[in-house]
C-alpha cells in the first residue's frame, strides 16, 4: 500500500508513474478509447499522491508528466504498436484501475496483476473458427442472401480466419495481410458459387467484407473529430480509409478481371 499524499523516495515516484502508464497502455491495447486512457492515468496518479498529472494520448503514444508535492516533475512516455479488441481483458484492466484508485495498490502489485491479465487466453482455435464463420454468414443474410449464400459465406469466413492468423503469426504487414485475405475472399466467393444455383457472389463477398472493413474505426474517427480528439481522429480516419481501399481492391480484383 502506498500511503496517500506520502511518497518519499524518488524511486517510488518513478515506479508509481510507471504503473499508471502501464495501466493506460493496457487499456489502449485492449481496445479502450483514448479519453479513457487519459482519464485513468490521471485518476491513478492522483490516488498515488501526485498533485497534478498531464496526460496526452494518441493511438500510437502516451506521454504523461506527473508532479509531486515538492513540485518535482516526472515524465514518461510509451509507444503503442498494436491495438486489438479484447473486451474481457479491457474490463479486467478497468476494474484494476478502479481498485488502484480506491486502495492505492502497490505499483509492483499492479504490474504483476497486469501480467496476469495479459496471460489470460482467448477462445480455442476451433471455436474462433466457428465465430469467424458466424459473423460473415450473419451479414450475408443481413444484406439479403439465401441459405446457400449463408453456408458458403460461413465457410469462406473460417478459411479466411485461418489464413489471417497464419499471416499474423508470421508478423506480416497488417495492410498487406488484409489485402491477401481479401484477394482470397473474392476469389473463393466467385469460384465456390460457380456451380450452385441461386448463389450471389456479391452478397457472399459483402458478408466477408464486414469482418475486414474498418467501419467501426471509420465511424469512431469521426466521433473523435467531433469530441476534440483531433489528432487521434485524423490518424484513425487515414488508417481506416487506406485499409478500406486495400480490402476493396482485394475483393474486387477478381470481378474486375472477369466482368
Amino acid at each position: 500500500m502506498v500511503p496517500k499524499n506520502n511518497m518519499i523516495r524518488e524511486q517510488d515516484v518513478k515506479q508509481a508513474l510507471y504503473a499508471a502508464v502501464a495501466v493506460g497502455e493496457a487499456i489502449l491495447e485492449y481496445g479502450g478509447e483514448v479519453s479513457r486512457v487519459e482519464d485513468s492515468i490521471q485518476r491513478i496518479c492522483s490516488s498515488y499522491g501526485f498533485i497534478r498529472a498531464d496526460v496526452f494520448c494518441i493511438t500510437s503514444t502516451i506521454i504523461s508528466t506527473a508532479y509531486t508535492k515538492n513540485n518535482e516533475a516526472v515524465t514518461q512516455s510509451c509507444r503503442i504498436t498494436h491495438i486489438g479488441n479484447d473486451f474481457d481483458k479491457l474490463g479486467r484492466v478497468n476494474d484494476l484501475s478502479r481498485i488502484i484508485c480506491r486502495e492505492h495498490t502497490d505499483p509492483e502489485k499492479v504490474l504483476a496483476r497486469l501480467k496476469e491479465i495479459e496471460a489470460l487466453g482467448t477462445a480455442p482455435f476451433p471455436a474462433r473458427m466457428l465465430i469467424y464463420a458466424l459473423v460473415p454468414a450473419s451479414f450475408t443474410v443481413f444484406f439479403g442472401g439465401n441459405l446457400a449464400d449463408l453456408i458458403i459465406s460461413g465457410l469462406i469466413g473460417s478459411i479466411l480466419f485461418c489464413l489471417e492468423s497464419r499471416l499474423k503469426d508470421a508478423r506480416f504487414n497488417r495492410l498487406f495481410s488484409a489485402l491477401l485475405c481479401s484477394l482470397a475472399g473474392g476469389f473463393l466467393a466467385n469460384t465456390l458459387s460457380l456451380g450452385i444455383n441461386g448463389c450471389n457472389p456479391a452478397l457472399i463477398s459483402i458478408g466477408n467484407v464486414m469482418v475486414f472493413i474498418p467501419g467501426v474505426k471509420f465511424t469512431n474517427s469521426i466521433r473523435d473529430l467531433m469530441t476534440g480528439d483531433t489528432v487521434t481522429g485524423l490518424i484513425c480516419l487515414a488508417e481506416s480509409l487506406i485499409m478500406a481501399v486495400a480490402v476493396a481492391l482485394g475483393f474486387a480484383a477478381f470481378s474486375l478481371l472477369f466482368i
Partner: peptide, 24 residues
Amino acid sequence: TPATGLLIVSSIPMIPGASLYRCM
C-alpha cells in the same frame, strides 16, 4: 463492465461498412 464494448458491438449492424466498401 465498461459500456464501450457493448456500444461498439451493438451498433455494428448500422455501421456503413458495406457502403464504405462499395465506395472504394
